[in-house]
């Protein structure tokens, strides 16, 4: 990211203004030589509530200021957080925001990983300023489940009790039918009765 002066010259006219600022700054700070100029390192100040619940929307802000404390505006700040997932450590992007005239880059975020989240706001540097970053720790407290599946669709009344009731009713009718005949047979088994032509069994024999 270190640009040589010649590289700067080859850039478009738009950069000349910035160049003037660099020269002016360098002059003010009493640096001896432009040719060997280190780009000034701005400071990034990351700020948010130190703890949050998972899924809670928190505002993550970063102030980008030059070494003199003046805000740097229209600069892009990238927000990341460091994770270790499945034994893989990586830096996962939260998002990017552009600083306003007060040097403030602001975005909202919903942290989801439990425990300490190392949040990094980094400024990639531009033609004028060197890169800079800041890391702060966000403590995510134990909280409620965030991801939920759609509950199964249930039709009111269509449940196990309906099934059980249906089966039981049908079986009871079967038992009732058998019992009715069995009962009649038992009650009248020794009762003599006139044999009529429609009666079956022994009567036909007689």
């Amino acid at each position: 990211m270190i640009h040589s002066f010649t590289a700067l010259l080859s850039r478009s006219q738009q950069l000349l203004g910035a160049l003037a600022i660099v020269i002016a700054l360098a002059g003010v700070m009493g640096w001896s030589s432009i040719a060997s100029a280190q780009q000034p390192v701005p400071s990034v100040n990351l700020g948010f509530e130190p703890s949050a619940l998972p899924g809670e929307t928190i505002a993550v802000s970063a102030y980008l200021t030059d070494p003199l404390g003046n805000p740097i505006y229209d600069a892009e700040i990238e927000f990341h957080y460091d994770v270790e997932f499945m034994n893989v450590t990586d830096s996962v992007e939260i998002g990017t925001a552009v600083t306003n005239e007060t040097g403030l880059a602001l975005l909202t975020w919903q942290p989801r990983s439990d425990g300490e989240n190392h949040i990094v706001a980094s400024f990639a540097g531009n033609d004028v300023f060197a890169e800079a970053s800041d890391t702060q720790i966000l403590e995510v407290l134990p909280g409620e489940q965030l991801y939920r599946e759609l509950p199964p669709y249930r039709i009111p009344g269509a449940n196990m009790w309906l099934t059980s009731g249906l089966i039981t009713t049908v079986w009871l009718i079967f038992i009732f039918s058998l019992a009715l005949v069995g009962w009649a047979n038992l009650k009248t088994r020794n009762e003599p009765h006139t044999s009529n032509t429609e009666a079956k069994g022994g009567s036909a024999d007689a």
């Binding site: 049908v170 009718i173 079967f174 009732f176 058998l178 009248t188 069994g201």
Partner: peptide, 25 residues
């Protein structure tokens, strides 16, 4: 299994009722 069936009118009536119920079910 003939379960003391004698063809008594009461038995015939009970059987008729049972069979009607079972037929519908």
């Amino acid at each position: 299994f003939s379960a003391s069936w004698t063809g008594h009118p009461k038995q015939v009536k009970a059987l008729d009722t049972s069979l009607k119920v079972m037929t519908v079910v």
